[in-house]
């Protein structure tokens, strides 16, 4: 399950659990449906409760980056635990996604 919060043109999505191929497919659908609202200009993904992620999660993030880039928006990530942070770097996600420390509550 996914929790989201809207503040102005920012949409914060709180992800949790394990993001693999099985889970990424449903996350893709849920986040895309939230992004149907064209006034969302920045997407924040909070990974603080994500306990595992593999390349399927990376694909899901790149997909949402493409959605946001197409409307001139941006994607931000926060709350990355070391294994997820390492995956971000290995996959080159840090070059397209702004990574913040802490969680969105403190940004």
């Amino acid at each position: 399950m996914l929790e989201s919060r809207r503040t102005g043109d920012r949409l914060c999505v709180h992800l949790s659990g394990e993001i693999d191929h099985c889970v990424a497919a449903s996350l893709r659908g849920e986040i895309e449906s939230l992004l149907r609202d064209p006034t969302v200009k920045s997407l924040w993904l909070d990974f603080s409760d994500v306990t595992f992620m593999d390349s399927s999660g990376v694909g899901m993030i790149i997909g949402r980056y493409k959605t946001m880039k197409a409307r001139g928006g941006s994607v931000h990530a926060c709350g990355l635990h070391p294994p997820v942070d390492r995956l971000f770097h290995l996959a080159g996600l840090h070059r397209i996604i702004a990574i913040a420390g802490g969680d969105t509550e403190h940004e």
């Binding site: 390349s55 399927s56 694909g59 995956l87 290995l90």
Partner: peptide
């Protein structure tokens, strides 16, 4: 088209 990244084998090697 399925949002596959093509980095699966690279991650296994890393």
């Amino acid at each position: 088209e399925q949002e596959r990244t093509g980095i699966g084998f690279s991650l296994m090697q890393s």
